[in-house]
Amino acid sequence: MSIQHFRVALIPFFAAFCLPVFAHPETLVKVKDAEDQLGARVGYIELDLNSGKILESFRPEERFPMMSTFKVLLCGAVLSRVDAGQEQLGRRIHYSQNDLVKYSPVTEKHLTDGMTVRELCSAAITMSDNTAANLLLTTIGGPKELTAFLHNMGDHVTRLDRWEPELNEAIPNDERDTTMPAAMATTLRKLLTGELLTLASRQQLIDWMEADKVAGPLLRSALPAGWFIADKSGAGERGSRGIIAALGPDGKPSRIVVIYTTGSQATMDERNRQIAEIGASLIKHW
């Protein structure tokens, strides 16, 4: 068994979910400061990975656009189908120029040979490839089937209604394609530690997140040497930005962190900087 497989195998399969305990108010002060700096709502939650206990939260039950963070949930649904014998990671999917949508850096290079389901999930999570996400959504039956998958695992909040790139529209008070920080954190924890997926599929999902190549300016920029992070970022219209992550010291994950913001006029660089500063405070007061 590899070190990575050993790491995931040791994560307990508890489903406990406790009331908020504000253990590190310094980080919450930074979250509130980020709201002021961005002129926007910021949602934040931090869960203990083992117990599910809420360590910190701010606007945990307010809706925020999911943006590309939904791609982790999508690949979780795909892996669930693989575990059930309904899908194969090695199955090759062919597509055409007409299937390509905005921001598809991986799929646009494989119009001739197509891509396997495994490769599409990797592209969707590590590079946030939008066409890969749409092709994967098609394999499970579309956005409503992803919502149904989430409902079946106990998440009655998170919903996907549209395809890429329309799902990033982020209209105020529009519940389409949204989640809440508390719901997303709990669902991510179930996918990474629960019995919904096999150990091999849980390991595959966290491996894809660990290999994320487009979230460098966010939490990763604040991470000390030797820390572990597996994450997925998202960006949308109307100043929307977000990240979901499993992270921790000593090379293994010990907490789930979810950060969303929407409604800002700030630049992407400024949104990234504020999320990175929240991450720096989190690590400082770990």
Rank of each mutant, 00 (worst) to 15 (best):
I3V: 07
I3S: 09
Q4A: 13
R7G: 11
A9E: 05
L10S: 09
L10F: 15
P12G: 09
F13C: 11
F13L: 15
F17L: 09
V21A: 15
F22C: 14
T27R: 02
L28G: 05
K30T: 05
A34G: 07
E35V: 04
L38D: 06
L38F: 11
G39V: 14
V42R: 00
G43R: 00
G43E: 00
G52R: 04
S57M: 10
S57V: 13
P60R: 14
P60H: 11
P60T: 14
E61A: 14
R63P: 09
R63W: 03
P65V: 03
M66L: 15
M66C: 06
M66A: 07
S68G: 00
S68R: 00
F70C: 08
F70S: 10
V72W: 00
L73V: 10
C75W: 07
C75L: 04
A77G: 07
V78G: 00
L79S: 02
S80V: 12
R81S: 13
V82S: 08
V82L: 05
D83T: 04
D83E: 05
D83R: 02
A84C: 08
G85V: 05
G85S: 08
Q86K: 11
Q86I: 12
Q86N: 13
Q86H: 12
E87A: 07
Q88R: 13
Q88E: 13
Q88W: 15
G90R: 08
G90Y: 15
R91M: 05
I93F: 05
Y95A: 03
Q97H: 15
L100T: 06
V106D: 08
V106G: 05
L111H: 09
T112A: 14
V117A: 03
E119R: 05
A124T: 08
M127R: 10
S128R: 00
D129G: 00
D129H: 00
N130T: 01
T131A: 12
A133C: 05
N134R: 03
N134E: 01
N134L: 01
N134A: 03
N134T: 03
L135F: 05
L135W: 01
L135N: 02
L135A: 05
L136P: 00
L137C: 05
L137A: 05
L137Q: 03
G141R: 05
G142D: 03
G142R: 02
P143L: 02
K144P: 15
E145Q: 15
F149N: 06
F149I: 06
F149Y: 15
R159Q: 14
R159V: 06
R159C: 05
L160V: 12
W163M: 14
E164R: 00
E164V: 01
P165Q: 06
E166P: 06
E166Y: 14
L167R: 01
L167T: 07
E169W: 09
E169A: 15
E169D: 14
A170G: 13
A170E: 08
A170Q: 08
A170D: 09
P172G: 12
N173G: 10
D174E: 09
D174I: 02
D174P: 02
E175T: 11
D177G: 02
D177T: 00
D177F: 01
T178L: 01
T178K: 01
T178G: 02
T179K: 00
T179M: 00
T179V: 01
T179G: 00
M180T: 11
P181N: 00
M184A: 05
T186R: 15
T186N: 15
T186D: 09
T187V: 10
L188A: 08
R189D: 07
R189E: 09
L191H: 03
L191G: 01
L192F: 11
G194V: 09
L196K: 15
L196G: 10
L197P: 03
L197M: 07
A200S: 14
Q203H: 09
Q203R: 14
I206L: 14
A211S: 14
D212S: 07
D212A: 04
K213Q: 14
V214D: 02
V214I: 07
A215L: 02
A215T: 06
L218I: 04
L218P: 03
L219S: 03
R220E: 02
R220T: 02
S221C: 12
S221F: 10
A222F: 09
A222I: 13
A222V: 13
L223T: 11
L223V: 14
L223M: 11
L223F: 05
P224Y: 03
A225V: 14
A225T: 15
A225N: 13
W227C: 01
F228C: 08
F228E: 04
I229D: 00
I229Y: 04
I229E: 01
A230G: 14
A230T: 01
G236C: 02
G236T: 05
R238F: 14
R238Q: 13
G239H: 03
S240K: 01
S240A: 13
S240G: 12
R241G: 04
G242S: 08
I244S: 02
A245V: 04
A246W: 05
L247W: 07
D250T: 11
G251Q: 15
K252L: 15
P253A: 10
S254G: 12
S254C: 13
S254P: 08
R255E: 02
Y260F: 08
Y260S: 01
Y260A: 01
S264V: 05
Q265R: 11
T267I: 11
M268I: 11
M268R: 06
I275G: 00
E277K: 11
G279V: 10
L282F: 08
I283R: 05
K284M: 10
K284E: 12
